[in-house]
Design a protein around this nucleic acid. Structure first.
Length: 396
DNA sequence: ATGTTC
């Protein structure tokens, strides 16, 4: 708990998890490996820490060098919370669930226009704009369960009667292509002020904005299904890297599954069967947290093991398609439903308790899930045999 | 995480 195991040649690691929070051994191992990477100065781990493909998820890493793998493939992935101008109690959940199936279809909006409005150039991945993607990504209608800090809630215009939409999505194929390109170049680490470092940052920053726009469009599509308008409460990426000038010395602050704690209230989702939280970061309290916060409950069991833990029979599917609050989970992919079952995740209350006890944040409001939408099984699109430029051939 | 299988 708040340990700083100083291994020879390794950067200090601060773990903001109490002994009550389960941290998998492999995640701790990955954390130590990260602390030993070239240029790494400090590592902060959150209680939602769990093992990932290229390194642990749920941590911030301050380094002299940019490590694209520490950001991962879903550059700019994050959480957008939006308030709808409709009362939560007015939503017809079954009707809404039906309409949300439209999110499995490509967005039919004017991609060129929204990109231009956002100041973003076109890429070959723009057809994915407005799509949620797979894995843990979701779009969830929520209602306020409780407001614990009325003054702060009022500052951001929270109204306990309104419905909300929380979107967890990222940069789809775009971010993936950027990491893929870096790995093909064989450069494990980049000098932040070098040409290659700047080129990565340009592509990265573009993907971060693209992902933010993607969440906005997804929220608008969801709002349209509820025949409502929306306004953003806050939107924060949790997979990203930023350059920081520390008195002439440029450093890279990576966040992998960790939200920034220096730009407004942080939406912290639970699993799809629990409350989600909106917290106020108390950044000044702990500089060793690297201006970061937990980004959710964090996985407890890996995806593969969930297929053995959850039977995907009719009765189980029926159970997984409801949440304990009487809400609906829409997911046309039984396998994904099993992988993303609430029991695959850590206890969000434990995670929140930890960040509160370590003085990292306080809870402003809690939200209960009404309707959660997750991607349906990917169906192979017939007839698209036309040879387009391969995404691996793509250059900005 | 990924136009997830070249």
């Amino acid at each position: 708990m708040g340990t700083s195991p100083k291994v020879d040649g390794c950067a200090p690691i601060h773990v903001f998890a109490s002994s009550k929070s389960w941290i998998e051994g492999n995640a701790t191992l990955q954390l130590q490996q990260v602390a030993g990477l070239p240029g790494v100065r400090a590592v902060a781990a959150m209680p939602d820490l769990h093992p990932g493909k290229y390194g642990p998820v749920g941590c911030a890493v301050l380094s002299d060098l940019i490590h694209p793998q520490l950001v991962g493939s879903d550059i700019g992935c994050g959480m957008g919370l939006f308030q709808l101008d409709v009362a939560a109690r007015k939503l017809r959940l079954d009707q809404l669930a039906g309409r949300l199936h439209a999110l499995d279809q490509p967005w039919d909006g004017d991609t060129g226009n929204v990109l231009a409005d956002a100041g973003l150039h076109a890429t070959m991945f723009d057809a994915s704009l407005g799509s949620i993607g797979g894995g843990n990504h979701f779009c969830e209608f929520q209602a306020i369960e409780e407001i614990l800090e009325p003054d702060i809630a009022a500052e951001v215009g929270l109204d306990r009667d309104h419905a909300y939409v929380l979107v967890h999505s990222g940069s789809r194929g775009l971010g993936f292509s950027i990491l893929e390109r870096e790995m093909r170049n064989g450069q494990a680490a980049l000098d932040p002020v070098s040409e290659s470092g700047s080129a990565y940052m340009d592509a990265h920053d573009h993907a971060v904005q693209w992902a933010r726009l993607n969440r906005r469009i997804i929220a608008e599509r969801a709002a349209a299904a509820a025949r409502a308008d929306l306004r953003p409460v806050n939107d924060l990426a949790h997979n990203m890297v930023e350059r920081h000038d520390a008195g002439g010395h440029v450093m890279a602050l990576h966040r992998k599954g960790a939200a920034a704690s220096d730009r407004g209230l942080v939406p912290v989702p639970g699993s799809r069967g629990t409350l989600s939280y909106l917290v106020e970061p108390l950044t000044a309290m702990r500089t060793d947290a690297l201006a970061s916060l937990a980004h959710g409950a964090g996985r407890k069991y890996d995806r593969a093991s969930m297929h053995g833990r959850v039977r995907v029979k009719k009765s189980d599917v029926a159970r997984l398609e409801r949440n304990p609050y009487g809400g609906i989970v829409v997911c046309g992919d039984r396998g994904l439903l099993a992988e993303e079952a609430p029991e695959a995740y850590k206890n969000i209350e434990r995670v929140i308790d930890d960040i509160v006890e370590f003085g990292l944040a306080r809870v402003v409001a809690t939200f209960r899930p009404l309707v959660t939408f997750k991607k349906a099984q990917s169906s192979v699109v017939a007839g698209s045999t036309r040879r387009e430029k391969s995404w691996k051939e793509y250059r900005r």
